[in-house]
Amino acid sequence: MWLSDRRSLLFGGLAAATLAGCGFAPAYGTNGAASKLQNAIRIDTPGSRNAYVVTRRIEERLGAGGADAPYALGLTLSLSEESSASTSDGALTRYQVLGRVTYALRRAGSGEVLDSNTLRHFTGYSASGSTVATLQAKRDAEERMMVILADRVIQELVLAAPDL
């Protein structure tokens, strides 16, 4: 028992020393680069349900910047759908939802673009159930897509934070 505790302590100390040596610093920690994004981004008013889901997710994770926030974030979303599986008689049983978000982080006062990118992702849903089940699966897939795209935007913003 004592030997295994000693090994885990030694391994933990070695891991901590390795991370300290590589310049690791928590993004949201004290003086972390991404801490300046907390409650500092005003997101343009969403124009659709999907844009609202993305806005809500970003605000959940980074906080809602008020009217005097130093940064403004513009989002453009698009979704498309294609069939991805069918039965031998041609009935479609699975769809793939393709999502794309283009974002632009601007300095609120000047409108200067500080960071922008276009991100893509996909998810799918089954169409083999009833009509109601298929419609609900489609809605769920679209909402999952919006959460994934929002998380990817947040990752990109955190990576860009040191240069803001």
Rank of each mutant, 00 (worst) to 15 (best):
M1Y: 05
M1T: 04
M1V: 03
S4D: 12
L9Y: 00
L9W: 00
L14I: 14
L14Y: 01
L14F: 10
A15G: 06
A15L: 14
A17K: 02
T18F: 14
T18D: 05
L19K: 04
A20G: 15
G21W: 07
C22M: 09
P26T: 00
T30Q: 12
A33G: 03
A33T: 05
A34H: 02
I43F: 04
T45K: 12
P46T: 06
S48C: 08
A51D: 11
Y52N: 11
V53N: 11
V53K: 06
T55G: 07
E59T: 07
R61I: 09
R61G: 05
G63C: 10
A64C: 08
G65E: 04
G65S: 08
A67V: 12
A69F: 06
L73K: 02
L77A: 07
L79G: 09
S83F: 06
S84V: 10
A85W: 02
S86N: 03
T93K: 03
Y95N: 11
Y95W: 11
Q96R: 15
Q96T: 15
G99W: 07
V101A: 13
V101T: 14
Y103N: 03
A104V: 05
L105C: 03
G109K: 06
S110Q: 01
V113L: 01
V113P: 00
L119E: 08
F122D: 13
T123F: 09
T123W: 09
Y125V: 10
A133K: 07
T134E: 10
A137V: 09
E142R: 14
E143A: 15
M145F: 06
M145Q: 08
M146D: 07
I148H: 02
I148Q: 08
L149I: 05
L149P: 04
L149R: 01
A150V: 01
D151F: 01
D151E: 12
I154W: 00
I154K: 00
Q155A: 13
E156R: 14
V158K: 07
A161R: 03
